[in-house]
């Protein structure tokens, strides 16, 4: 195996494994920048994965190649609906954010499997026939060395995710919407006195996280697992949350961290084919993202980096 093909394998599998994490971690930044802690990302991904697989199985015949893309949007919409639960509970009903998020994580897999059993009379769905597959950029893939590494047989969705991350950064730091969203996460009191609708912006943050988290789950189901069962999403939501923290609540940072965690995950899966890596017990690669997150939290972040009002309920004075 020459080194170009080794690097190409690593890059393309990193991209495939990172994509769901990028989307979900971006979702997390929106929710938490608005002041709502979202440990329910895992549950949102489950609902996104579930709904996209059901949509894909139902409409693959009539929609053909476009199916996974539309199914990803369907996953996003279902994610929005599911995250409404979190939004209502934390914003209007003053629930503890961690409790509400945990409820979503408990609810989603149960609901998903229950619905699968009710619809298909078995515990997991069939495998989908239309998945994201691999994509070669016309023209670009012909470039020597760089072409095969970055643009041939790679994940198109990963490039979409990177573009979304750049857009999310622009939205959060360069627009009026982003400024206001961040202000309700830092100091809802002050934002309220300036006439900013605190509840409205917090809803926006949570619902955006629902949309992106749902897409993340849908992408995972349609590019990696290929079906839906109770074991489809196990921990990706939490890794995404870790990526968001690692990236210091910044969309570009979250994307970078998600790429890194995707790299670690893909190493543990393709490591066996790679000289050198196959000597390391896979457990170290599996636990690396989690240990790294803890280390980063301890040594680099401390407590100051999270949005100041993150995790607190805002009670509007009468």
């Amino acid at each position: 195996m020459n080194w170009v093909s080794i690097v190409a394998i690593i890059i393309s599998s990193t991209l495939v494994y990172s994509t769901p994490l990028i989307f979900t971690a971006l979702g997390g930044t929106f929710s938490e920048r608005g002041g709502i802690v979202n440990v329910g990302l895992e549950g949102i991904m489950v609902m996104g994965a579930f709904s996209s697989v059901v949509f894909n199985l139902t409409f693959a015949g009539s929609l053909g190649k476009a199916t996974p893309w539309i199914a990803a949007l369907v996953g996003g919409v279902v994610g929005v609906i599911f995250s409404l639960l979190h939004a209502v509970a934390t914003i209007n009903f003053r629930a503890d954010h961690i409790i509400s998020g945990t409820v979503m994580n408990l609810m989603a897999p149960a609901l998903g499997v229950f619905l699968v059993k009710a619809m298909y009379a078995k515990g997991q769905t069939d495998n989908i026939e239309q998945n994201f597959g691999y994509f070669s950029f016309p023209g670009l893939s012909k470039i020597p060395v760089l072409g095969p590494i970055f643009f041939k047989d790679t994940s198109l969705m990963a490039y979409v995710a990177i573009l979304v991350a750049v857009f999310a950064w622009w939205l959060m730091f360069k627009t009026k919407f982003g400024l206001r969203l961040r202000s309700v996460g830092e100091n809802p009191q002050a934002a309220d006195t300036l006439g900013i609708n605190v509840y409205g912006y917090r809803y926006a943050g949570v619902l955006i996280s629902g949309f992106l988290g749902g897409i993340g789950g849908a992408v995972f189901a349609q590019s990696i697992s290929g079906n839906f069962s109770v074991g489809t999403i196990v921990g990706q939501g939490f890794i995404s949350m870790a990526a968001m923290i690692f990236g210091k609540w910044n969309p570009i940072g979250a994307m970078g961290a998600a790429l890194f965690f995707g790299f670690a995950q893909s190493l543990s899966i393709i490591g066996g084919q790679l000289p050198g890596i196959n000597k390391i017990p896979s457990v170290y690669l599996l636990i690396a993202p989690y240990i790294l997150t803890i280390l980063v939290l301890v040594f680099f972040l401390g407590k100051a980096t999270a949005p100041k009002a993150d995790g607190t309920n805002y009670i509007k004075s009468k």
């Binding site: 639960l85 629930a95 409790i99 409820v103 408990l106 149960a110 609901l111």
Partner: peptide
């Protein structure tokens, strides 16, 4: 799975005890 749905719902209602 309906058991987990019921369980999660109970905790949800405990969580929104304010209401």
């Amino acid at each position: 799975e309906i058991v987990s749905i019921v369980t999660a719902s109970i905790i949800f209602f405990v969580g929104i005890d304010y209401v």
